[in-house]
Amino acid sequence: MTGIVEYIKDVFGALKSLWTGMKVTGYYFVHPKEIVTEQYPENRETLKMFDRFKGELTMPHNEKNEHKCTSCGICEMNCPNGSIEVISKFETIDGKKKKMLDTYIYHLEMCTFCDLCVKTCPSSAIEFAQTFEHAVWDRSELTKKLNKQDSVCSKDIKE
């Protein structure tokens, strides 16, 4: 007798669990606002990538054309595939010889967007931008210089 009761319970339990699943999919079917698809080329103007998206490496500059890079080279050491080249120069300020950033070269074509450079930068000088349209006609265009012309490190300036 208990076998039959179990059997009937089984059938109704199964129907109930199936209905639970169908309610979820039915909800999505009648709620088009849940759709997550981005119509990419059409919504180019309004499309905003999320903050943690890693598009390309950038070095933010402030309005006085200053960046925070001290040319320590930790990012270059940490980069697993050599996408970063930090070329430094030595200048004498107040009679002291000081290491300064000359050119910060970033190879976008080699970058795997692992985020190790940004994580290890002691002065938070570099960060990832949310841009993603990187297609170019020539590979040389993918090698970028991140520090702007005549920019200086903000830490070197005497108050």
Partner: peptide
Amino acid sequence: KVCAFIQCRLGPM
């Protein structure tokens, strides 16, 4: 289309 809407997609557009 039905499958796309159920899976929160748009389907062929």
